Amino acid sequence: MELKLSASYDATPEEVFAIVTDATFREQACEKTKALSYDVQVSESGGDTIVRVSREMPSNDVPDIARKFVGQTLTVVQTETWHPAAADGSRHADVAGEISNTPVTLKGTASISAGGGQTVQAINLDVKVAVPLIGKKIEPFVVDAIRSGLQKEHELGRDWTN
């Protein structure tokens, strides 16, 4: 199931990139999404910046049909590999993630680009729940949970740019 989301900031692409690759920002985002525990790692590899966030989340909002797959908590691991800036300052990232010990994966891209005096951060993910018969029924719940977390992260990003 596809998930597309974007947010605009009153900042340059360089400033938005600095925020999304800042470990303190990512830790605050984990706290804002009510993570029970988290681990944030930002590293460099060649010209790429790699952001890996692992967060343990309560499974309270998981529908009963899926709870047997995840238990009382779930660990969401997401890795963004941000590539070097283009001449205009825009950036693109490969995004991969999973909910550990479940058949849930996500894969896609993220971007930061200038437009109309603002900078737009966009994410485009394909979320898969590889469970025969019920996977397609669970995917909307997973997508909604990811969307909610990303929206909270975008709100925090706006706070950081003000």
Rank of each mutant, 00 (worst) to 15 (best):
P84R: 09
L125M: 03
G71A: 08
G108K: 02
V131R: 03
S90R: 07
G135A: 10
E15M: 07
K68H: 05
L3E: 09
K34G: 02
E153A: 09
D48V: 00
D61C: 00
V120R: 00
T73V: 12
A114M: 06
T119K: 01
V53N: 11
V143H: 01
K34R: 08
A35G: 07
K68T: 10
R91E: 13
E98A: 06
T75Y: 05
Y38E: 10
S54E: 15
E98M: 03
V77Q: 10
A11E: 06
A145K: 12
I99V: 15
Q72L: 04
E56M: 12
G135H: 11
E139P: 05
L3T: 11
Y9N: 05
A85E: 07
S37N: 07
S59F: 11
R26W: 09
P84A: 05
S111N: 15
H154E: 09
G71N: 11
V131T: 15
A114Q: 13
Y38G: 03
E153I: 01
T12D: 08
E14W: 04
D39H: 11
K32W: 02
L125Y: 13
S100F: 04
V16P: 02
F25R: 03
S8E: 14
I146G: 00
D88T: 04
R91M: 10
T81N: 12
S43Q: 10
V131K: 07
K152Y: 00
V120C: 01
S111L: 12
E14P: 03
R147E: 06
D39G: 13
S90C: 11
D144V: 01
A66L: 08
G149V: 08
